[in-house]
Simulated scan of single mutants.
Amino acid sequence: MQEQAFEKIKHGKGFIAALDQSGGSTPKALAAYGVSEDAYSNEDEMFKLVHDMRTRIITSPAFDSEKILGAILFEQTMDSKIEGKYTADYLADVKGIVPFLKVDKGLAEESNGVQLMKPIPDLDALLKRANERHIFGTKMRSVIKHANEEGIKAVVDQQFEIGKQIIAAGLVPIIEPEVDIHSAEKVACEDLLKAEILRHLDALDSDQNVMLKLSIPTEVNLYKELIDHPRVVRVVALSGGYSTDEANKKLKANDGLIASFSRALSQDLNVNQSDSAFNDTLAKAVDSIYEASI
């Protein structure tokens, strides 16, 4: 199972869908979907509504393994079911799509121009549960806002340290040190980031593999060396606040970089759409992101 999934992610044509909005970003995701905050009165009701939204996306005929290689889930989504199967099993068994899990607990306050991840105290237990739920890999996000060498080093050190814990648990980590697309120092941030990532990749053992999720670089093909690195399964790009069209255009210019978009995938979906309108809208987004990824 893991071997098949590894081959699909490494060599498959397509992109990875990010369906992992968490507690902090869920109200925003629901609002964009046409569900206002007065539609729920507590967290459980909110997560039920967002699971309904994700279920509608995942079960849509447009959400298909021909174009989508993997999907990143939030913890609650992993523990919820679709048509009687746990979400990851539904993705793998019914859709042929590889399941990933977001494992970070959000961002710490900014320091040295970056936001590290908050501590993940229950990570071992979460990874054990992820294995039981047949998850292939994980995702965790930090943010870089300024070209501060010390800050960027701290971000990459933390990502790889936790990444090795994830590898030891038998999963493939997606390491995501996002560079803020609005940073006035974006180019300098990306140069520092690439150097730090390469340093860590070169130090990995031959049986330690990672994925990378990065902001689309300003300098075209800046990350080609990372894409070609023997320890890297795949490099995927986040949309980072770009519109779908802009993200796709920038992605197309970078050889070997594929999408892992969240907002760009679902931005035109609405709870009040008929099934045919919803499926058509999703199909258009999937097709455009797929084209940009290949």
Rank of each mutant, 00 (worst) to 15 (best):
M211F: 03
V220C: 02
L212D: 04
I175Y: 05
V210L: 08
L193E: 14
D180G: 07
T218F: 05
N221W: 02
A169S: 15
L204T: 05
V179Y: 06
A195S: 14
H229L: 04
I216E: 08
E219Y: 02
I227W: 03
R231F: 02
L204G: 08
R199C: 03
N221S: 02
T218W: 01
R231Q: 14
I181Y: 11
Q208H: 12
S183Y: 11
V187L: 12
L222T: 01
D207W: 04
P217Q: 11
A184I: 06
H182D: 14
E219G: 00
R199N: 14
K194V: 11
P217L: 10
S206D: 15
R199V: 05
P217Y: 12
A169G: 06
V232T: 08
H229R: 04
E196A: 15
P230E: 12
E185C: 06
D207N: 15
D180A: 14
I227A: 04
K213G: 02
N209W: 12
D202I: 03
A203S: 15
C189Q: 10
V172C: 08
A169H: 11
E190R: 08
H182F: 10
N209M: 15
E185S: 06
E176I: 04
L198K: 15
V179M: 09
T218L: 12
I174D: 09
V172E: 02
G170T: 08
L193C: 08
S183F: 11
P217T: 09
V187S: 12
S183Q: 09
L204Q: 09
L226I: 13
P173K: 10
Q208L: 02
K194N: 12
S215V: 03
L193W: 10
L204K: 09
A188Y: 02
P173Y: 11
E219H: 10
V210Y: 07
H182Y: 12
Q208N: 04
A188K: 15
D191R: 14
I174W: 05
A188S: 13
K186A: 14
T218P: 00
Y223I: 01
V210N: 07
